[in-house]
Design a protein around this nucleic acid. Structure first.
Length: 119
RNA sequence: CGAGUUGACCAGAUAAUCGCAUUUAUAUGAGGAAAGUCCGAGCAUCACAGAGCAGGACGCUGGCUAAUUACCAGUGAAGGCGACUUCAAGGAAAGUGCAACAGAAAUAUACCGCAUUAUUUAUAAUGUAAGGGUGGAACGGCGUAGGUAAAAGCUCACCACACCCAAGGCGACUUGGGUGGUUAUGUAAACCCCGUCCGAUGCAAGAGACAAUGACAUUACGGCUGCUCGCCGGUCAGACAAUCGCUUGAGGUUAUUGGCAACAAUAAUCCUAGACAGAUGAUUAUCUAAUACAGAACUCGGCUUAUAGGUCAAUCUCACCAU
RNA sequence: GGCCUGUUGGUCAAGCGGUUAAGACGCAGCCCUCUCACGGCUGAAUCGGGAGUUCGAUUCUCCCACGGGUCA
């Protein structure tokens, strides 16, 4: 995933956390906040999930999954995804489907038919 | 065939599609421990790193190294039938402290006992560490030995200890011989003494720019640690931002030589991550025993800890069987 | 990335190397009472794990594990 789409400063993380709307399931939490600029994403994986190897793996899988979904999303929002403890046990496909589930729940998908076909 | 000991190695590979980091692009892209941060250095700033006190670390010998107490080889001690393993291993006669309970007595000692003498005949004085019981430790141990009133290194043999001599070894030390009857336990990982070493802070160190402007201030304040001295400098905000530091290094690989080894020398050859919300993932196929522990953040040398499944070595050890 | 600090019944905790490891709250059992409460008695700890020093470690030293704090 390109650097353009990344959230960087801790200020913007705080802003999303305060002003955004949150949606959750057993594996992940999604927080969204509207923005004037382009779409950006941040991933938060805390030390609760495990050691460095586990955390990196979860982050990489989330990044790969989200990369495929970007073209179908509403571009005027900032996204923040927090991994819960259950996410450490999931494989790639389970994580992808739970990301899709949350995005549909938040009603931010534009072309729903193509979106559902992504594997 | 069974049970062990020690040392070493591997840590998935190939192909396709999409994606990430460095990069103009090709190309390249986590480990044996990248981990713990337990030691030692480089490097940077403070003065080209200074003095004293305090404080800390280490302590058998020789070697190696940029450096170390931590690496290598030995010595000694302890453990194991053995291969082998473990050890912060100077000084207790410089001084101080501590040694609960038990025991007559714990660093100086006579409770019971055994003898002799005296008389009041069951007491006292004297001698005595062989016997008793306590304890981790009780004038070194032990004996069909001598000796004695009873005993005792009082004498003798052997062992232990101290000192001296000889031989071997660079040395720690070892082996052998002789002399001495031997005023005294343990603890220094208690304080301490002796010897050796250590200035402080760590890349969030720091460097040069952008950058004006504002605030404080000259026997002040700060740098620089616990204290004293000495030395140097105006300081802070702006400034949790960007660039550099950042990867060619006491480097790796191979070969030869020296060395038991750690390691060193010579030659050839290679350049092999450099991020800053922080790069290695997803899918498919084939092979396979491959499903472990685990993710670089300035860089090296050692130590420690975690680790699936497997491979190899030692003319290794023990037990059983056969000859 | 660096530097400090802690771990003792279920919880909060004291503990100068030495007798059976104080205490409080809670829990369980017994006594007291017609019953409950109050009160009294009793019980539950290999001192985070593993080595070492010592005659003897909760205490001293080393190596691990898991917490907490701090530095721009």
């Amino acid at each position: 995933m390109n650097k353009v789409y990344r959230l960087k400063s801790s200020k913007s993380f705080e802003y999303i956390h305060k002003h955004g709307k949150s949606y959750a399931n057993t594996n992940l939490v999604l927080i969204v906040a509207p923005t004037k600029f382009n779409l950006k994403v941040g991933f938060s994986v805390s030390k609760k999930l495990g050691k460095a190897v586990v955390r990196n793996k979860v982050k990489r899988r989330l990044r790969e999954g989200f990369r495929l979904l970007i073209p179908y999303l509403n571009t005027h929002f900032n996204y923040m995804i927090i991994a819960r403890q259950n996410a450490a046990k999931c494989d790639y496909h389970e994580l992808l489907s739970s990301v899709k589930h949350l995005l549909l729940k938040a009603n931010l998908v534009e072309n729903k038919q193509d979106f559902n076909n992504i594997v």
